[in-house]
Design a binder for these strands. Structure first.
Lengths: 234, 234
DNA sequence: TCACAAAATGACCCGCCGGTCACCTTCTGC
DNA sequence: GCAGAAGGTGACCGGCGGGTCATTTTGTGA
């Protein structure tokens, strides 16, 4: 073997590249934890570097844009990527939403998946919640965040529109409906997070959320959104 | 008149006190504008003082707690005070929510009032939106914000519970329903704020919200929440 | 008009943090 | 082994901003 390229150990991607990627990933993991804990302004680059067990300078080798680049990378690749994955998985076949019952079940599944996803990835949830509204309202960052958010809304609005076209759902503007659905998930996560905190004074005084599982919570949200609050005219 | 107390000009509250109150109010107005514009971390005490046309030292005479005291005072007295006022005014007689139609109309009124209130008080809206979620999730401030938020939820949950007891609404846990209702208002305000920004590239490309008036928007939210998304079984 | 108190002021202090760079370690090819 | 490159490192820099306080200004009573 006269001239194997620089691959003495194994695998085509190259050991160097793999190590580089692994370091990059470790830095992002640390950044996610710190941003989630302290929020964007409260987080310090020193703490992220320390948590990742690298020198601050090394971190700037991997992310020349510094704090901003870390945050935006996490938001776009990790948080939005995960979100789009959950949404796509919830609608394997949008053309199947032809009956009210099928639509109801599919969206209930989406809601439950979202709740599970964010409770499995607490760091993503916190990073998402703590600063996204402020960034979205800040003229300097609004363009970035609004376009990314629009894509999420589009992804949810598409199956809604399909279900409306098929006569499964009441005809309403689809994007506002998608906003409502996502807002309800967001609101419920906020309320249940509060409940998850290790109660200080009264351990079991007044449970903030009466739902034990994500499935219960998703069922509740679905009932309100799809069946409505009005008493059945039974 | 041998010994009128120190009231040479007029009015019992005392001129000094009135002036002091007016200054305090001017400082709070300036702080509201700056916090709304830049968010809590982005705002600087210097800018607040300059906007209020006072020296920074003077501001510390009125608010010894500095930045934190300004923010918390605004949040509690102005924002939450306004919110509770709107909610109370929407339910002059909670005992009247005895039929589905009456309940639907009353809550639609609440939603419209909330939308109008926050579009009339943009500064309060921005201050509320930009930092409240982060504060609520930050263990250091959570206690304060969670209790205040709980009171708002209670104020909305009470008439919901009354309507459920009267058979006007489907029986569901009232507080989670209140969370959903408030979350939907919040979500809609975020979406419509985006629409209100002076479009950069395409002026009228794709309107973010298809609603022209708060009444339209309230009607939409009410339809989803109360009548449900499912197609009428007509 | 003057002496004194109360209140306003902004120059200053100091800790903090994002970002840099000269130095050092490690790894590679010979 | 060794020379040189590639890459890691943390002490350091500059500014920024919350909070203070000696000084000045304003208001009050005699």
């Amino acid at each position: 073997m006269p001239d194997t390229p620089p691959a003495p150990t194994l695998d085509p991607p190259g050991r160097r590249d793999r190590e580089r990627l692994a370091r990059r990933r470790a830095m992002l993991d640390a950044a996610l934890a710190v941003f989630g804990d302290k929020g964007f302004d409260g987080a310090t680059v020193d703490e992220i570097a320390e948590r990742a067990e690298f020198g601050k300078g090394t971190l700037y080798n991997y992310f020349p844009g510094g704090k901003d680049e870390l945050y935006l990378t996490l938001f776009e690749d990790v948080v939005l990527g995960g979100l789009h994955g959950v949404i796509a998985r919830a609608f394997p076949d949008p053309a199947a939403l032809t009956t009210p019952a099928a639509a109801r079940a599919a969206f209930c599944g989406l809601i439950e998946s979202l709740l599970v996803h964010f409770s499995d990835h607490r760091g993503q949830f916190l990073l998402f919640m703590k600063d996204s509204h402020r960034m979205q309202l800040d003229p300097e960052h609004a363009a970035f965040f609004v376009t990314r958010f629009d894509r999420v809304i589009d992804a949810v609005a598409a199956p809604i529109e399909a279900a409306m076209a098929a006569g499964a759902l009441r005809r309403l503007p689809a994007r506002p409906v998608a906003h409502l659905l996502m807002g309800n998930v967001r609101g419920h996560l906020m309320a249940s997070h509060e409940a998850a905190r290790p109660a200080s004074g009264h351990p079991a005084a007044a449970p903030a959320t009466p739902f034990q599982t994500p499935a219960d919570a998703a069922s509740f949200i679905t009932t309100v959104l799809f069946d409505g609050l009005l008493a059945d005219p039974a």
